[in-house]
């Protein structure tokens, strides 16, 4: 049996935390691209918040006003096989506060690489299919940006390694995906020689707590369109609360419950290699994060490196294109 030819680009998820902690795109969708295709694309996203949580205390801050982040991201996905894809992305970020005196920042954030593997894809009957994915990701800062300039830092400047398990079920056009992620974060070095968390630390090294998250998403996935809603829960495994009127810090306990929508459209007949995506998310509740609203838009294009005939790109596990 020939494999089902599936080509698509990945969708995005922005974990919009208080201090522009954008855990830039995790690969969170249950779709593989077919062997020897390369997908490249760009994303723009805008994220802003006015209210934030110091620990559990929700407040605004007239010395920050609205903190906003723009992200311009280059992304790519290469299909080594039908069941193994390699993904990367590189975001350039600008941050600013609308009030107060703090200087803005800009620069490359973290380069990420993901290996996405689909060991199981099982057709249950003519109308439904179940699949299982395992992902490993790693990220490293792509510039020497300051982590200890929250909330206007570009990120937390940690090296990370992530593992993710994902389950997907599709029935006709309907689908549901659930995934869980564990992220290891390396310690970071900051520019000052001592800092206070819940005690004084006489060192420039910061123990970064690991993170865990789960994500559930559901909606419609067909040959040329995806329309989905999602919910994501982020949890920092350790870390500490920002005290009242204190400055935030990279190793804060940053938790967030995020809801969002996402759309994808592929020009199946006119230009099957081209797809457009758009989405939005909102932090419903959080801890030591900003109540961010985020919008994003992307363009993706697939370049076939295979000698085989190019088939239309699509996202439907059941179309049965062979």
């Amino acid at each position: 049996m020939q494999p089902i030819i599936k080509r698509t680009c990945f969708t995005l998820l922005f974990i919009s935390a208080l201090y522009i902690f954008v855990q830039a795109q995790t690969d969170i969708d249950a779709i593989m691209m077919a062997k020897s295709n390369f997908c490249v694309g760009g994303t723009f996203s805008h994220n802003s918040w006015k209210n934030y949580w110091e620990g559990t205390f929700k407040r605004d801050n007239q010395n920050l006003g609205t903190v906003s982040t723009n992200m311009y991201m280059l992304m790519g996905n290469y299909a080594v096989t039908d069941k193994l894809n390699v993904l990367f992305n590189l975001p350039y970020i600008t941050t600013k506060a609308s009030a107060g005196t703090l200087h803005n920042s800009r620069g490359l954030q973290d380069f990420s690489l993901w290996l996405k593997w689909m060991p199981i894809e099982k057709k249950l009957n003519a109308n439904s299919v179940f699949s299982l994915y395992g992902l490993i990701g790693a990220s490293t800062p792509a510039s020497n940006y300051q982590a200890d300039y929250q909330p206007l830092a570009l990120g937390v400047h940690s090296n990370t390694v992530s593992g993710r398990l994902m389950l997907d079920y599709q029935h006709k056009a309907f689908f549901a995906t659930a995934s869980g992620t564990y992220q290891y974060r390396s310690n970071i070095t900051i520019d000052r020689t001592a800092y206070y968390t819940t005690e004084i630390h006489l060192t420039n090294k910061v123990d970064m707590p690991d993170m865990a998250s789960y994500n559930v998403r559901t909606g419609i996935r067909t040959f040329h369109v995806i329309a989905e809603v999602f919910f994501q829960q982020n949890k920092t495994l350790g870390g500490f609360d920002i005290r009242k009127n204190d400055m935030p810090f990279p190793s804060n306990k940053m938790n967030a419950s995020i809801a969002g929508v996402h759309f994808k459209y592929t020009f199946v007949k006119a230009l099957p290699s081209l797809s457009l995506e758009a989405g939005s998310s909102y932090v419903l509740h959080g801890r030591n994060v900003g109540q961010a609203i985020e919008y994003n838009a992307s363009v993706f294009y697939i370049i076939p490196f295979s000698h085989k005939k190019v088939s239309p790109a699509h996202s439907c596990k059941l179309c049965g294109l062979r």
């Binding site: 200087h103 020497n144 940006y145 300051q146 200890d148 300039y149 900051i190 520019d191 000052r192 020689t193 001592a194 800092y195 206070y196 004084i200 005290r243 009127n245 204190d246 400055m247």
Partner: peptide
């Protein structure tokens, strides 16, 4: 246009709120 080295010097000596 502050440089990264200038930012390092600023943060090293900042000693603002929440510090000793």
């Amino acid at each position: 246009n502050p440089t990264r080295e200038q930012n390092r010097i600023v943060q090293f000596w900042a000693d603002g709120i929440g510090t000793y």
